[in-house]
Write a protein that binds this DNA or RNA. Structure first.
Lengths: 246, 246
DNA sequence: AAGTGGTCTAGACCACTCT
DNA sequence: GAGTGGTCTAGACCACTTG
């Protein structure tokens, strides 16, 4: 009776027990068994279900917390994470006056197009698949500050192709979640620099050729699928960002 | 015999046992008892010394790993972390040609000055204290790419005020560690955009008024003391940086 | 072979939240 | 008070590194 389990490798090859447990739980989340906002079973029940000690299950859940899949609240429970918190573009820009408040949003253009190669690559679609393209201006205290170009897979965002854009929220991600059950879980922002062309400059009330910061964002849902591809431009002189290295 | 210890609060008020253990160990590191590169005692010995269970001590050590103070290597031991790994300025710039290699460094100017207010604030010194100011050009494949202005507390860096700068290393942090036992443990980089003045432009072979990315760095040692304040400028069109949000 | 950190267990008790 | 996650313990065994 010396052994029947308890190897560093559990059921998976080359993975610790808690790592493969985390993998299994992650699959139950991405498969939709537990949806964003929903509670997972209590840790001791999960441990019992999987036939592991409580400590091992806690290790697995810790991993999922690190990876941003779940959130644990002392006394309340364990929940699938809802959405991104700190994804605002304003953490890249500092405009005098408007501090803190949400910029108002104006949709300048909306159309359904066939995905050009660069966009298709970004969104993980085939070239030519239908996509929804938005041009959007964001204003603070009435002044135009950020100009955005967004590309969305039409298959997922069809309801946004026909309605009244004036009624849209100023923040898109909460609207995606509310109206389409699309939860942005992770994003990658690539920061670069460029000069405004004539049209961009006009929208931002700046002279053509004015330097601008460019943020290219790819946003992903829980399953790792890219759900939005966005380019944001704003006055380079308003750009600032702080990185901590350890 | 129901109790004599084992409260969530150990010896410190409002802190868990492992958190106050971590605090105590951190103090032994920052006080210099264990210096960068040195090995800590084995975890079971530490646990015994502090009269806690092994698991509790492991929790404390995990915290110190997260905070960047120590590094644990399976089978070898636990060590005070040496220096920063990913602090290179090149993670902010992409120049064609030179990929990966370390830029060569040329000291353009070196002098001892009295700290102006802005620098004194950055370095945590009193206004007027002596500081070493460097102007430094960094080249890749013979082309000037980055222009830097560095401010160092003279009290710590005196040996660098008189020697032959041509013999300096291309990378400063390893040189600080080797020659002065100053280990950069943490840094804060603030990114912005600006325009080159005439002198800066000349050094970088760019026209005056050309847009540039500006990185202001404050670098700290283990004790949290600011040991270097630096401004780096490079062609804005070569700037790029990627941020992941979760 | 000895010493190190990493994994896993089984169980007790504490702290927080909700009803 | 019942249910949740958080802390702590004591001990076994595994995996990696070095002599």
């Amino acid at each position: 009776m010396s052994s029947h389990l308890q190897l560093a490798t559990g059921n998976e090859p080359g993975l610790s027990r808690y790592a493969s447990l985390a993998q299994a739980l992650r699959a139950r989340i991405t498969s939709g068994e537990w949806t964003p906002g929903a509670a997972l079973p209590a840790e001791n029940q999960l441990a019992q279900e999987h036939g592991v000690a409580l400590g091992t299950m806690r290790r697995a859940l810790e991993l999922l917390v690190e990876q941003g899949f779940i959130e644990r609240i002392h006394g309340r429970g364990t929940f699938v994470r809802q959405g991104l918190s700190g994804a605002t573009m304003l953490r890249f820009f500092r405009f005098d006056g408007g501090t803190g408040e949400v910029p108002t949003s104006r949709i300048l253009d909306r159309r359904v197009l066939n995905a050009p190669p660069a966009v298709a690559r970004g969104l993980g679609l085939a070239v030519g698949e239908p996509v929804l393209r938005l041009h959007r201006l964001r204003l603070m205290e009435g002044l135009p500050r950020l100009l955005e170009e967004l590309w969305l897979p039409h298959a997922l965002f069809a309801p946004l192709a026909d309605d009244d854009t004036a009624a849209w929220d100023d923040l898109l991600y909460p609207m995606y979640a509310r109206r389409l059950q699309i939860h942005v879980h992770r994003a990658r922002d690539e920061i670069g620099f460029s000069l405004l062309n004539a049209s961009q400059a006009q929208h931002l009330n700046l002279p053509p050729g004015h330097p601008c910061a460019v943020v290219e964002r790819a946003a992903f849902d829980l399953t790792g699928r890219c759900v939005e591809w966005r380019i944001t431009r704003g006055d380079a002189h308003a750009f600032h960002y702080t990185v901590h290295i350890t």
